[in-house]
Simulated scan of single mutants.
Amino acid sequence: MGVRVLALVRSSAEGEGFVPPSTKDFELPPIFGDNPYTTKPIFLVLLSVVLISVFFIAASRKAAVVPSKLQFAGESVYAFVRNDLAKDVIGHEFLRFVPYLFTLFTFILVNNWFGIIPLLQFPTMSHVGFAYVLAAFTFFVFHYIGIKKHGVFKYLKDIMFMPGVPKAAYILITPLEILTFFLVRPLTLSLRLFANMFAGHLLLLVFILGGEHLAQGALALKLVSPFAFGIGIVLTFFEFMVQCLQAYIFTLLTALYIAGALADEH
């Protein structure tokens, strides 16, 4: 966002007027030369892995009966995922899925937070490719679990021919169930995360860059610019809540899909 502000100020000084943010603001150039693998989103993904690892290693390194503030923070996040997302949703077989759900939740959460952290200010998940990869992991995990427990034939049979449904209804229900399990679930899971992060960041750009542009204008516009900045600050807090909520929803739906794959109906 910092580069975008400098470009906006330069264009205002040259009399070009306000250039509204668009999808081009998400097409970031490589950090080092022309290497496509050194873009800011990739750097942020690697940074998130380092930050998460360092935090939880430090939080658990000197674990004590009376926890320190750092240990308490780490244990609180783990307990939330373990109890509220894994245990309550999946049931008695939850424990073996806690590492995956915990990793998924913390990874998405930190990468979402990057959108409002000064100097970084870019949510990684606003690039749809990252959301697709996470959804693909969940897609293969819950199908693998279902096939492993029930066998390929029974698992696919229960998907295509829902138990307890009149045979005539299969003409309509079977195609819908196939689409739901093999296309709709991974697509909605990824696009929901991507769309919220993309739209939120774009909205912040509108008010922050708009306020910057107004501050470069006439006196009347300068008086209005603080309101644009004020709305931008309010939206930043709102975006923080959305970022946390999207990490929770993605992990919750993953737990629900796993619970469905383990259900006796399959």
Rank of each mutant, 00 (worst) to 15 (best):
M1S: 14
L6W: 07
A7E: 15
R10L: 03
S12A: 15
G15S: 02
G17W: 08
V19L: 13
L28D: 01
L28Y: 03
P29S: 02
P30L: 00
F32D: 04
F32T: 05
D34M: 10
P36G: 04
P36I: 02
Y37E: 04
T38S: 01
T39F: 02
T39N: 04
K40Y: 01
L46I: 09
S48L: 09
S48E: 12
V49M: 14
L51K: 08
F55K: 04
A64Y: 00
S68I: 01
S68N: 03
K69A: 10
Q71V: 07
Y78R: 14
F80R: 07
V81M: 05
R82E: 14
D84M: 08
D88E: 12
G91S: 03
F94D: 11
F94P: 03
F94I: 02
V98G: 06
Y100S: 10
Y100V: 10
L101D: 01
F102A: 07
F102W: 13
L104H: 11
F105W: 09
F105Q: 01
L109M: 05
N111S: 09
G129C: 00
A131R: 13
L134K: 13
T138K: 09
I147N: 00
K149F: 00
H150S: 00
G151F: 05
G151A: 06
L156K: 05
M160S: 10
M162I: 14
G164F: 08
A168Y: 13
Y170F: 15
I171N: 11
L176F: 07
R185N: 14
P186E: 14
L187K: 04
F198H: 11
L202T: 02
G211V: 11
H213T: 12
H213C: 09
L214W: 04
A215V: 04
G217N: 07
L219S: 12
K222A: 08
S225W: 04
A228V: 09
I231T: 12
V234L: 15
L235T: 03
T236M: 15
C244H: 12
A255V: 12
I258P: 03
A259R: 15
